[in-house]
Computed example of a mutant assay.
Amino acid sequence: MMDFATPVGIGVALVAILVSMIMDGGNPAALIAPSSMLLVLGGTFGVSLAGYRLKDISMIVGAMKSAILAKVASPDESIKEMVKYAEIARKEGVLALEAATKSIQDPFLKKGIQLAVDGVDSERIRELLEGEIDSMKARHKAGAKFFKDMGGFAPTVGILGTIMGLIHVLGNLSSPNSLGPAISGAFTATLWGVLTANVFWLPIENKLHRVSDIEVRTRYLIVDGILAIQAGASPRLLEQQLLTYLAPKERAVVEAARESSKKKAA
């Protein structure tokens, strides 16, 4: 399921900023400064991209999508799936899982089940799947670092815009009536730099780290589940083993759902 915490959180922060500004008698329209916004947004993106390759743009776009509309991995759903495969393997043998691989959408899980079906040694399976996890962690780290860089550069680019604005002000001291608006416009760049860093880029970085942590944990859960199935573990024992990946409250929800389904089946 999609998680909308990031756009909701950013929206709440922006509303709080605008409302507080209005309460102090300010005009939110004063924040709309196209030149400052162009400098901060464009300049920040440019200097951040300078440390990457052009091929990395697709990775950056994917990271943004993951943060805004992330389909967060669900460990409890993975546990249910692994228990289902354990029941098939217990009744019909591990080879019976080959038919189940055709309907598996997750490439990681599909690869692991196929390796088990092919009779690959358990240590080799762990090595291959953990290699996949390490590769995924590296990709996630690179995506999150881009937004960390943007969060670091944005305030500095904003200060650059303010300095440019003040230079313009000092060059027009002969027009006292225009000094106020000119100085106000100059500091708008700093405001946009600090605002975008702390309301957009750094929260997105934090979200990417959180999503990555959940996905990595789910991947390790799948590895343990596949190896347990290959070793012939009972579905009940497998479930108890994999539940250790969940927090106590999450375990209680899974166990309650299982008991409820048993009652309905009876």
Rank of each mutant, 00 (worst) to 15 (best):
M1P: 13
M1V: 10
D3Q: 08
D3W: 12
T6A: 10
V8R: 00
I10W: 10
V12P: 01
V12S: 04
S20D: 03
M21T: 07
P28I: 02
L31K: 08
I32C: 08
P34R: 05
M37H: 02
L39A: 07
L41K: 00
A50N: 07
A50L: 13
G51Q: 08
G51N: 07
Y52G: 02
R53E: 09
R53M: 05
L54N: 08
L54Q: 11
K55C: 01
I57W: 11
S58M: 07
M59E: 07
M59N: 13
M59C: 02
K65G: 06
I68G: 01
I68F: 15
L69D: 06
V72R: 11
D76R: 11
E77Y: 00
I79E: 14
K80V: 11
M82C: 09
Y85K: 09
E87Q: 15
R90E: 12
K91S: 11
V94W: 02
E98R: 15
T101A: 07
T101C: 09
S103F: 05
I104V: 15
L109G: 08
L109W: 06
I113Y: 05
A116E: 12
D118K: 06
R124S: 15
I125D: 04
R126N: 12
E127T: 05
E127Q: 14
E132I: 01
S135D: 14
S135G: 11
K137P: 06
A138S: 15
H140N: 15
K141L: 11
A142F: 13
G143F: 08
K145C: 04
F147N: 10
D149P: 01
M150Y: 04
G151R: 03
G151K: 05
P155N: 07
T156Q: 06
I159D: 06
G161M: 05
G161R: 07
M164T: 13
I167D: 06
H168W: 03
V169R: 00
V169Y: 03
L170I: 12
L170C: 03
G171R: 02
G171Q: 04
S174G: 14
N177I: 09
I183T: 03
I183Y: 08
S184I: 09
G185T: 10
A186L: 01
T188G: 13
G193T: 02
G193H: 02
V199S: 02
F200H: 03
W201Q: 03
P203L: 09
P203Y: 00
I204N: 03
L208C: 12
H209F: 11
H209T: 15
H209E: 15
R210L: 05
R210M: 10
S212P: 05
I214G: 01
I214Y: 07
V216E: 15
T218R: 13
V223W: 05
D224C: 08
L227M: 09
A228P: 06
I229M: 08
A233G: 06
L237P: 06
L237W: 14
Q240K: 12
Q241M: 13
L243G: 04
Y245P: 12
L246C: 04
P248I: 01
P248S: 00
P248T: 01
E250Y: 05
E250G: 11
A252T: 14
V253T: 14
S261V: 14
K262V: 10
A265H: 04
